[in-house]
């Protein structure tokens, strides 16, 4: 299993659904971040000019993924940024600790081929877990 994502077609009537994978939880989070922004724009056209650091922690890895994606949606609106590079460090002690650096640039409707505006991450069919081969997988439905 390698880092990546697939959009799930017809999973839900009105929204954006994807499955993300990675060899490690950090890769999974990176893939999910990229899938989220690919749903909103053509990430190939986003230049990694602006850098933001994100720090989050939670005892449950699924809630941490919910918080991670929610934080990215928040930055999209609050800072007006779209991201294409996600560098995630994840450690598990008493709880999961995430330190990430994300890179992108201010939203430009002329260059970014904008798609749907993500409103929120949902708990609908939301799943995070390890696969039989030891990789990591998540299913996410985003309200748009």
């Amino acid at each position: 299993m390698t880092q990546g994502y697939t959009f799930l077609e017809d999973r839900v009537i009105s929204d954006l659904a994807f499955e993300a994978t990675g060899d490690t939880p950090a890769e999974l989070f990176q893939a999910a971040g990229l899938a989220l922004f690919e749903g909103m724009a053509d990430t190939g056209r986003i230049q990694p000019r602006v850098r933001k650091e994100i720090r989050l922690k939670h005892a449950q890895i699924d809630q941490l993924l919910y918080d991670w994606l929610s934080e990215l949606i928040y930055l999209k609106d609050a800072a007006g940024l779209l991201f294409r590079e996600f560098s995630v460090q994840l450690d598990q002690n008493a709880e999961w600790n995430l330190i990430a650096t994300v890179r992108g640039e201010p939203i430009d409707p002329k260059r970014h081929a904008l798609r749907a505006d993500a409103k929120a991450v949902t708990y609908h069919q939301f799943e995070v877990g390890q696969t039989e081969t030891g990789g990591w997988k998540a299913r996410v439905v985003v309200d748009i």
């Binding site: 809630q63 919910y66 918080d67 929610s70 949606i73 928040y74 609106d77 929120a120 708990y123 309200d143």
Partner: peptide, 15 residues
């Protein structure tokens, strides 16, 4: 985004 964030925040609280 204002309402979307409030829904996100409280869904988490209620969970």
């Amino acid at each position: 985004g204002f309402g979307h964030q409030i829904a996100t925040d409280y869904l988490r609280v209620f969970d």
